[in-house]
Simulated scan of single mutants.
Amino acid sequence: MGAPTPPPHRVDVRRALGGGSVADLLLWRRWLAGVALLFSSTATWFLFERAGYNLLSFAANTLFLLVLVLFLWAKSAALLNRPLPPLPDLEVSEDSVAKAADVILEWINHGLSIAREITVNRNLKLFFQVACGLGAISYIGSLFNFLTLVYIGVVLALSVPFVYDKYQDHINDKLCVTHSILQKQYKRFDERVLKKIPVPPNKEKKIE
């Protein structure tokens, strides 16, 4: 008999998620924050989707109530010689703006590199992957509205990492089988369809 197959390498899910407070939240190591996020997301979805409440009216009423409370608090503080309401510093720092700009720039450059690979280098494999991905997103978007998609994303974010971290070995076995099947199907599609599509040679224009 041959040597037994070694067990697959386990992935540190917490490190893969960044290893910070967000990772602890998604893995339910901060269960109180997870419950609060799930409850608030469910309440928001039910309020706007089932109760038929309008988002603009809700935002306006919430801001009006907040301004009214702060106004009455400030007036009573002046009359009773009490401290003013503690308002946080609402200024956006330049560092946070620069970090957000770097992230956005990285995503834009990645999208432009994919577009160049498809249009200039005529990568049919990448074109097929992008077309399938956009088609799947379009189909899912036609089934749900934006708020429902956000709520589903929150529920999946609070469930998928936790389940994968707990049952990683069993899920990896199923994923390996699925990946091998998809590879065989794509190889057949590549041989029967993609390789038969004539691709003109990529001629770069000479700049005089």
Rank of each mutant, 00 (worst) to 15 (best):
S41N: 14
A51W: 10
W31N: 06
R30S: 14
H9T: 09
A23P: 02
L26Y: 05
P6K: 03
N54T: 07
S57Y: 07
A43Q: 14
A33H: 13
A33I: 04
S21T: 08
V22D: 06
A3I: 04
R14I: 00
N54A: 11
E49D: 14
V11G: 01
A43E: 14
T5F: 04
N54I: 04
W28L: 08
D12T: 00
V35L: 15
L55T: 08
L38K: 07
N54P: 06
A43H: 13
R10K: 07
V35W: 13
T62K: 08
A33G: 06
A43D: 13
T5C: 05
W28Y: 04
P8N: 04
L47N: 15
A59V: 10
L55R: 10
R10P: 06
L37N: 08
A3N: 05
E49F: 07
L17R: 01
F46Y: 14
P7H: 00
S41A: 15
S41T: 15
A3P: 01
F46E: 12
L37D: 11
N61W: 05
A51M: 15
R50G: 13
L55Q: 10
N54M: 03
P7E: 09
P8S: 04
R29F: 05
W45N: 15
G18I: 00
L27G: 04
P7R: 04
G20A: 03
A23T: 03
P6T: 03
A36D: 12
R15K: 06
L47D: 13
L55E: 14
A33S: 13
L47W: 15
S40Y: 12
L32I: 11
L55H: 09
V35K: 09
R15G: 03
P8A: 03
Y53C: 12
